[in-house]
Structure formats: C-alpha cells, structure tokens
C-alpha cells in the first residue's frame, strides 16, 4: 500500500545523502585550498556551488510534495522536516566554503602572515564537526550528535584566539589590512561551519529521539 511513498522517501534520502557528500567534499577542498595556497582548488570550490543550490531546490520541492500528498506522521514526518532543515544548513555550509575559497584567492595575492595563527587547527576542528554531524545523520546516531554539539564551544574558543592573535600583531604585521581582515573572515566562516554542524546535530537528535535540545531547552 505504501510502496510509492516508501520509494519517494528513499529518493529523498538518496538526494540528501548526495548533498551531504558534496558539501563535505567542498569544505574539505576549500580548507585544502586555503592551507596549501592552491588557487586551482579554490576555483573548483566556487564552481561546485551551483550543484548544491540545485539540490537544495530539488530536496525542498520533494519534501513539500511528500508533506502535501501523503500527510506523513511520526518517524516519517520527523525525517522529512529534519531533512528540510538539514538541507538548508548544508546549503549555507557550502556557501561558507565558497567564501573561504574567495578569501583564499585574495590571500594568494599577498605573502603569508609571518605570525603563526592556528587556522589549520580550527579548520580541522570544524571539518571534523561537519563530518561527524553528517555521520550522525546517516547512521541516526544521536549519541554522536550530542557529542558533536559539545565541541562547538571549542571552535568558538579557537575563533576567539585567532582574532586575538591577529589583533595583537605588530602594526607592521597587520599590513596590508586586507590580509588580516581576510584571515579573520576565514576564521569566522569556519566558526559558522561548526555552528551549522551543531544545527544538523540538533535536528538529528529530534529525528532519532524526538527531543528538542535547541537553545539549551532541557527536559
């Protein structure tokens, strides 16, 4: 009786998993481009955003149709609504990847900053949060999702440290000012990636356990 609906759900799941894979790849490439000062990879990231935007539209459309035509309930309803929200977060994360790539192209026009700021550490932390949030979604693993949420504070802290390190550079090192602004923006983008990964985990917890933990609401 429900074969057609199950088929449509499966199709939705395949699309959101494909989008997850692409976004994870975009962020990985954007970070690689940044750390390795590779313009080719940065351009690749910028180009790949179109595919993500198309997938977002397709997924939204499919979710709306499933809601309107089948009036899903319970676990199915939670899957569809969570997918809509996760899709939105993924699209934003891809945009942040594009921003990082654009900042990278700017940074390539000037020599690297002499003072050591730990962008690689922060990039790794954000990328791992994204990866684990998507693993939590794919495997319906709310325990992992909780654990990822807790890591957001660490990324916020790293962001603050980078900001302070740049701020405390000598006036000489702070020139050109575009370079330090770009670095602060890159850190901000990485911090936002971690925020969206946290959102994804909150949706995974709702999907799996039916619990709302957003905005620190406790039972």
């Amino acid at each position: 009786m429900h074969r057609h609906f199950d088929e449509a759900l499966k199709n939705l799941k395949e699309k959101i998993l494909r989008m997850s894979g692409l976004v994870e790849e975009i962020i990985g490439t954007a970070i690689k481009a940044l750390l390795e000062r590779n313009s080719e990879l940065a351009y690749k990231v910028i180009k790949s955003d179109d595919a993500i935007n198309m997938l977002e539209i397709e997924i939204d459309d499919l979710c709306m149709k499933l809601l309107a035509l089948y009036q899903p309930t319970a676990g199915d309803l939670r899957f569809i609504t969570s997918t809509m929200k996760i899709c939105n977060d993924l699209e934003r994360i891809a945009d942040l990847g594009v921003n990082i790539a654009q900042r990278t192209l700017d940074l390539l026009k000037v020599p690297p900053l002499k003072v050591k700021i730990d962008i690689p550490k922060m990039a790794t932390a954000s990328r791992e949060m994204l990866k684990d949030s998507l693993n939590a979604f794919v495997n319906k693993d709310s325990k992992l999702a909780y654990e990822v949420c807790k890591r957001d504070d660490e990324v916020d802290k790293l962001n603050h440290e980078i900001f302070m390190a740049v701020f405390q550079c000598t006036p000489e090192d702070q020139k050109p000012v575009e370079r330090v602004i770009d670095l602060i923006l890159v850190a901000k983008n990485l911090e936002r990636i971690a925020d969206h990964s946290t959102n994804i985990c909150e949706d995974v917890i709702y999907l799996v356990d039916g619990k709302v933990i957003k905005h620190h609401i406790t039972d």
Partner: peptide, 15 residues
C-alpha cells in the same frame, strides 16, 4: 502523531 513512544504506534500510523 509526531513522536510516538512505542515502535508499534509509529509503524501503525506511518502505514
């Protein structure tokens, strides 16, 4: 209808 606590309820209302 959004978050039944029993799997059998979930299975029934989702058809």
């Amino acid at each position: 209808f959004t978050n039944p606590s029993d799997q059998r309820t979930n299975d029934y209302i989702t058809g």
